[in-house]
């Protein structure tokens, strides 16, 4: 197995790591960097639990090889809050009751963050469209969608 030296920025801090060719970004985050907020629900790009922001775009980190991330900037759920202040998507998710078992939550939050970065005031259809790749078995999505509407409002008042 070939190994590669790569460096990438994860949640604002520079990481230099030696990774085998077949290591996914998900496993790099969860195992090498112990950033276990990013979840593994299928390792097959089908559930969205492992969603992270890669250079600002939401990706299933189980489908991205670590070697492809040389020089990239990655944001995980652990990087959403700053200085102890929750990101609006996090605060709204708590308030609206969008969390049950919480296993889909990190991926949902990242997809929500990406959506609000694209469009700070999305409509209902746009919200449900943006989350179609993030499966949740507990909540029935109702309060999750609600929370993203709330997050948009919260973000507008904070700005």
């Amino acid at each position: 197995m070939a190994f590669h030296e790569i460096s990438l920025t994860v949640n604002g801090s520079l990481e230099q790591v030696r990774v085998p060719s077949n290591l996914t970004l998900m496993r790099l985050l969860r195992e090498s960097l112990a950033l276990t907020g990013t979840k593994n629900g299928c390792s097959a790009g089908e559930c969205g639990a492992c969603t992270v922001l890669l250079n600002g775009e939401p990706v299933n980190s189980c489908m991205v090889l670590a070697v492809e991330c040389d020089g990239a900037e990655v944001i995980t759920v652990e990087g959403l809050a700053s200085d102890g202040q929750l990101n609006p998507v996090q605060a709204a998710m708590m308030q609206a009751g969008g969390v049950q078992c919480g296993f889909c939550t990190p991926g949902m939050l990242i997809s929500a963050r990406a959506l609000l970065d694209r469009n700070p005031d999305p409509g209902e259809d746009e919200i449900s469209e943006a989350l179609v790749g993030n499966l949740c078995r507990c909540t029935g999505y109702i309060r999750i969608l609600e929370s993203i509407k709330e997050a948009a409002k919260l973000q507008a008042t904070r700005a």
């Binding site: 907020g37 990013t38 759920v77 652990e78 929750l86 996090q90 708590m94 308030q95 969390v99």
Partner: peptide
């Protein structure tokens, strides 16, 4: 509010 909501939205919750 859920007692575990904050740890779950920050990624701190341990599975």
């Amino acid at each position: 509010p859920r007692i575990d909501a904050r740890e779950k939205v920050t990624g701190a919750a341990l599975y």
